[in-house]
Amino acid sequence: MQIFVKTLTGKTITLEVEPSDTIENVKAKIQDKEGIPPDQQRLIFAGKQLEDGRTLSDYNIQKESTSHLVLR
């Protein structure tokens, strides 16, 4: 499924993911596309910070959901 990640600069990154993917996996995909190390990434969805060990389905992130990327 596709999800979108919006950066603070207003850029939207499109990612191909599975509901069973962990947040860690998603951060690795963002690193592949954008070159941002996962330890600098914070992903926010529905006002919550997403934890590495959880999956997209844990957070009820469905296709075409948009989460926000904040850099630390």
Score class of each variant (00 low, 15 high):
Arg42Asp: 09
Gly53Met: 08
Asp32Ser: 12
Glu64Gln: 10
Ser67Pro: 15
Ser67Asp: 10
Ser57Asn: 10
Ile30Gln: 00
Pro38Glu: 06
Gln31Asn: 09
Thr12Lys: 07
Ile23Asp: 00
Lys11Leu: 09
Arg54Gln: 08
Asn25Val: 14
Gln2Tyr: 12
Lys48Thr: 12
Pro37Cys: 08
Ser57Gln: 13
Lys29Ile: 05
Glu24Trp: 15
Thr22Gly: 03
Arg72Thr: 14
Thr9Glu: 11
Val5Asn: 00
Pro38Phe: 12
Val17Glu: 00
Leu8Asp: 12
Thr7Cys: 10
Gln40Leu: 10
Thr12Met: 13
Arg42Ala: 10
Val17Arg: 00
Met1Gly: 03
Gln41Val: 09
Thr66Met: 11
Leu8Met: 13
Thr14Ala: 09
Gln2Asp: 06
Glu18Tyr: 14
Ser67Glu: 13
Glu51Val: 09
Glu34Ile: 15
Asp39Cys: 13
Lys48Leu: 11
His68Lys: 07
Arg42Lys: 12
Leu69Ser: 02
Ile44Pro: 00
Gly47Trp: 04
Pro19Leu: 10
Phe45Cys: 05
Phe45Leu: 07
Phe45Thr: 02
Phe4Leu: 10
Val17Ala: 05
Ile30Glu: 00
Asn25Arg: 14
Leu56Ser: 00
Leu15Gly: 00
Glu24Val: 08
Ala46Lys: 14
Thr9Cys: 15
Ile3Cys: 02
Ile61Val: 07
Gln31Glu: 09
Asp58Ile: 02
Thr14Ser: 10
Ala28Asn: 10
Tyr59Gly: 01
Ile23Thr: 04
Asn25Cys: 12
Asp58Ala: 04
Tyr59Asp: 01
Leu71Ala: 07
Lys6Glu: 09
Glu64Ser: 12
Asp39Asn: 12
Gly10Leu: 03
Thr66Gly: 10
Ile36His: 07
Glu51Ala: 08
Gly47Asp: 06
Gln62Phe: 13
Leu50Pro: 01
Leu56Gly: 00
Gln40Cys: 14
Gln62Trp: 10
Leu8Ser: 14
Gln40Asp: 08
Ser57Cys: 05
Ser65Trp: 07
Thr22Gln: 04
Lys48Ile: 14
Thr14Cys: 13
Ser67Met: 15
His68Met: 12
Met1Tyr: 14
Gln62His: 14
Glu51Pro: 03
Val70Arg: 08
Glu64Phe: 13
Gln2Pro: 06
Pro38Trp: 11
Asp21Trp: 10
Lys33Ser: 11
Asp39Gln: 11
Glu18Lys: 14
Phe4Cys: 09
Gln2Thr: 14
Leu8Lys: 10
Val17Gly: 02
Ile44Asn: 05
Ile30Ala: 01
Lys33Trp: 06
Ile3Gln: 01
Ile61Ala: 02
Lys63Cys: 08
Ala28Pro: 00
Leu69Gln: 02
Ile36Glu: 02
Leu8Arg: 10
Asp32Trp: 09
Lys27Val: 02
Lys29Tyr: 06
Val70Leu: 13
Leu56Ile: 09
Leu50Phe: 02
Gln49Ile: 15
Leu71Val: 12
Thr14Val: 14
Thr66Leu: 10
His68Asn: 08
Pro19Cys: 07
Glu51Trp: 05
Ala28Tyr: 11
